[in-house]
Amino acid sequence: MKTGSESPIIVLGARLLSPFIMLFGLYVIFHGHYSPGGGFQGGALLAASVLLMRVASGTQISSLMVKESLTTPLGVVGVLIYFGTGLLAFLMGGDFLDYGALPIPGLSPEYLRYTGILIIEIGVGLAVMMVMILLYDKMATGEEEVE
């Protein structure tokens, strides 16, 4: 655990700011239809908060936060949430991604659409976040193999 070479200003500053950036990303996802943003932008911000910890403290320590082996499966889960919601609406007799046809009981069509968009955006956000972290990890480790 070689952390002595890191400057405390960078590491502790990153740890102070990173939770707020992550919460801001979640805010962008959850408020996608009142303000600009949505799944993709929120996912980019979520990934940014994880990458801030990776950049500041090294991959070894920050893999405590998101394990490298988890990025691909969680990204796949994100895509499956998106695709599954669309396919479910298709199977229930609507079009693909027709939120009105989702089989959630006790909701008016307006709220059904709202819920559908929210589920889709969570899926997109998860996929974008995990793929971005995956790209960073691949780039970081590929560099070590060359040397």
Binding site: I10, G13, L17
Partner: peptide, 16 residues
């Protein structure tokens, strides 16, 4: 608050 915290950290990282 974000500017007041992040700007010194960023320039410190660059100088370092």
């Amino acid at each position: 608050v974000f500017i007041a915290l992040a700007n010194p950290i960023g320039s410190h990282a660059l100088a370092r």
